[in-house]
């Protein structure tokens, strides 16, 4: 393998890995705050992609420009999902929690299929289209934009959680709900906020991914399992962990796909999930 090829593979892995990190940060935030695994997270991403697509198809607005609207819409969806369903199952058995978000996943897919047909749709041209050539390696500008976006979102989220009053309250709820309540933090609104922010992150992810990936009702399934791997590897609830884990998973996927064959990519990544669960269940940066 030549050095150029090696570098090309590494860069591809890094770019895709940052996109996985972007999908995973929202998931890990929700889990960290309330110990619920959101199986419908891929569908938040899907909704973000459709919001971008319709903004483009109906009004000719670029997904990158409509991103704030997409994020706001998804924030609303996240809060709504929390208020209507999740709020009622906080203390329910784990089985109910799993199936409630699983049901949501199927519900969103069904609704998308019903209203928008199962067809694959594409954002045909975007501000960030085209390829970038750096010496001997080449990559897509949309992927690069998405990767930069991922870094931005993770940094922004980190700043919010550690440097703002509201963010610290959220973080406090994640660490110890009882103690946070005693300090006068309203647990319920923190949970709703976590769902809103988590969904908004997925929405931003959707907007960025929509610039280079086909959009269809089941598109979330391409990302959700990998997002789980990233969350587990990074440590449930750790934003920074998810960031690094995303990169690791992306690189392993691309390198593994190159060595073993691209059709085994998913199997390689899922084997990594099993390995991490069994050897180090708390992940790279998990707390406990």
């Amino acid at each position: 393998m030549t050095a150029d090829l090696f570098l090309q593979i590494l860069v591809s892995g890094l770019l895709i890995g940052l996109i996985y990190a972007l999908v995973a940060v929202g998931l890990t935030l929700i889990f960290g705050v309330m110990d619920i695994v959101n199986f419908a997270h891929g569908e938040f991403l899907m909704l973000g992609m459709y919001a971008s697509f319709w903004g483009f198809a109906l009004f000719g607005i670029d997904p990158i420009l409509s991103m704030p609207v997409t994020a706001a819409l998804l924030f609303g969806v996240g809060v709504l999902v929390y208020q209507v369903i999740i709020r009622r199952i906080i203390n329910a058995p784990m089985l109910s929690q799993i199936f409630a978000t699983f049901g949501l996943m199927i519900l969103f897919r069904g609704l998308a299929q019903f209203f928008w047909k199962p067809d694959h749709r594409l954002v045909t041209h975007t501000l960030v289209g085209g390829n970038v050539t750096l010496g001997s390696i080449q990559f897509g500008l949309p992927q690069l934009t998405a990767a930069v976006g991922a870094v931005g979102v993770t940094a922004g989220l980190w700043y919010f959680l550690h440097r703002t009053r509201l963010g610290t309250a959220l973080e406090a709820t994640a660490i110890d709900r009882e103690a946070a309540t005693l300090m006068g933090i309203n647990g319920q609104s923190m949970f709703a906020l976590a769902w809103g922010i988590g969904a908004a992150c997925a929405g931003i992810g959707g907007a960025l991914i929509a610039t280079f990936f086909p959009i269809f009702p089941e598109v979330g399934s391409n990302f959700i399992l990998i997002a789980f791997v990233v969350v587990v590897l990074g440590g449930f609830g750790s934003i920074v962990g998810a960031f690094w884990a995303g990169i690791i998973v992306g690189v392993i996927e691309v390198v593994g796909g190159f060595v073993v064959g691209p059709e085994y990519k998913t199997a390689i990544v899922l084997s990594l999930l099993l390995l991490v669960l069994l050897v180090r269940p708390k992940g790279l940066m998990g707390k406990a």
């Binding site: 369903i85 009622r88 199952i89 329910a92 058995p93 089985l95 109910s96 929690q97 199936f99 409630a100 699983f102 049901g103 949501l104 996943m105 199927i106 519900l107 897919r109 069904g110 609704l111 998308a112 299929q113 019903f114 199962p118 009702p217």
Partner: peptide
Amino acid sequence: TGSGTDMIIYALMIILVAVYSP
């Protein structure tokens, strides 16, 4: 299949059982 209606009914059923009747 394809219209999504069966998925919607299926999903609502799952959610209702999960939320109201564990």
